[in-house]
Nucleic acid binder design. Sequence first.
DNA 1: CTGTTAGCGCCTTCAA
DNA 2: TTGAAGGCGCTAACAG
Lengths: 339, 339
Amino acid sequence: MSTRPPSMRDVASRAGVSLSTVSRVMRGAPGVAPQVRERVRNAADELSYVVSRNASGLVTGRTGRVSVVVPYLKPWFFGSVLAGISEVLREADLDMLVYQVGDLRPQPGWTRTLPLRRNCDAVITVSMDLSEEECHRLDDVGVPLVLTGQRVPGRASVFIDDQAGAAGATRHLLNLGHTRIAYIGSRGDSWYSGSSMNRLRGYQAAMGKAGLTPWSLIKPPGHEGGEHAMGELLSDLDPPTAVLAEFDDIAMGAHRALRRSGIGVPEAISLMGFDNHEGAAILDLTTVDQSPADIGAAAGRLAVEITEGTRPRDTHLEMPTQIIPRQSTSAPRSVRGLS
Amino acid sequence: MSTRPPSMRDVASRAGVSLSTVSRVMRGAPGVAPQVRERVRNAADELSYVVSRNASGLVTGRTGRVSVVVPYLKPWFFGSVLAGISEVLREADLDMLVYQVGDLRPQPGWTRTLPLRRNCDAVITVSMDLSEEECHRLDDVGVPLVLTGQRVPGRASVFIDDQAGAAGATRHLLNLGHTRIAYIGSRGDSWYSGSSMNRLRGYQAAMGKAGLTPWSLIKPPGHEGGEHAMGELLSDLDPPTAVLAEFDDIAMGAHRALRRSGIGVPEAISLMGFDNHEGAAILDLTTVDQSPADIGAAAGRLAVEITEGTRPRDTHLEMPTQIIPRQSTSAPRSVRGLS
DNA sequence: CTGTTAGCGCCTTCAA
DNA sequence: TTGAAGGCGCTAACAG
């Protein structure tokens, strides 16, 4: 059972050539006669031999692996990002290591618990909202770093303009004729994430420019937060006619509260999310699309270029967002009556 | 920039000991004086040295890595399974390689394109529905295999009893008083997946036992399928009073069709899914829970045990399923009227 | 308890 | 175009 798998030596003797020749063939290096090349290929196939990345990496100093660090693996968003990264890496013949650090994040030394050094050629962080210090710690492992979900000057990073996206969403509601537009945002236990802050700012800015007073509720993340917030809004003396949620999960919770209260969407209240969660399509929820797979692919490409030594010309990639209009938003009743 | 990272030699000379001693300390091997151990630890810390898995693996024959093979990365299900696997592997100090093979699956030799051999200690497949032949091909790479999402006699595998789950779901609807219960299933381009088949069978069996005629529609997977199927059902002369979907995505599509048609759930039609998708909670959809994270954790544990040489006592793990009653199912109107 | 030695499988010189 | 020799960083025997 546990007999050692075939090594290059086995292939060499089977093909009747030397180790170096097999090595050259397997790497696709030039300087081997076509016939010999063929013979070696066959021998390798028959033994179903593959090169040990371990051993080759030992010599070349490259591991052929890229680490992806995510806070959590369950939310749909991360799966999509990983899918994008995965495809790019496969094409570049790199393997993808995945580390979920969510629970150990609070520990100050979490970066050291990852066996990154010497075990991968690059690190991609996904929406980790890294502090300056954390970035430095990761730098210390001596592996190139690509960030996603946050914009950090001077570092390879892929991100969206959350502020512009939220402002655009707000304008969409303004354009429909709404003036009483509430915003439901989120805050973790101890801090705002950068993207939370930026989306809130975008909403506030758009409202301000329209001469309206922002009206925002901040809740713990998740759809429960949306549900509670919507409850509060519905108990207001003069409830909003439109609600923008920081992300779709929140919007979906709000949607549930409305459904349970028998309040029509968008007849009574327009509802808009952010992210284009797959559930948003099912709820016919108007939202802002950021395509995570594209973000992943872009980050993957950066990582590949960096590991291959070709300095990418632009290491700062701002990805576009796009409003997806669906049936959860419409003009407010008053305006509709007039038109 | 690209100066070689510190090696064991650097640590050894800094601590004033030999390579073996450093090795022993780093591995936690016994036989080192506490003082010396401490001294080595410090030296390693100061250099922020970590052992190269590459090099140690070359000697031990173990890589410290487990490969996880998934068809796709985007669907929520796989993220949850990965989360479960990830935690278990981290505790065992193993790294997780992830391969998404969806698109290249049709090619007969896809198993060979994965650089599995010599690059990991075990392979976990997630809902890959492997054929006997594919299993053999993977065996050929000489790495222990753990399957999830399918029951294969004689192989380490983690699975749920789809048939029993679907039968239970059907009985739930029967118990509520429904008799006209339709089933919406899915089929890929060319074949049923094993779990699709089993769920359909479970439904059919439960209906048969109740003396009722099964009524099933088979569509392409995804929520569109559910939407179309529901359209068909609604255009029937005598529509069903309850619908069971093979999985939540389908149910969510059906739910959307009902919502758009203004048909009350569960007032007019009860709707039930399978999987406990997070969207199911938002739609208040009654469903059958299979907890993917637990499946992943169980598979991860099997993989760890196998790589560590401890033959697990049971390599065949059937995970429980559980009905989650929510507001999308109730007694049919006729029965309700009587009670 | 500690150090020395000989590889693990491969790539990279260099020589033929 | 091919082969032989040396070493990548580490562990596993052994010897002290």
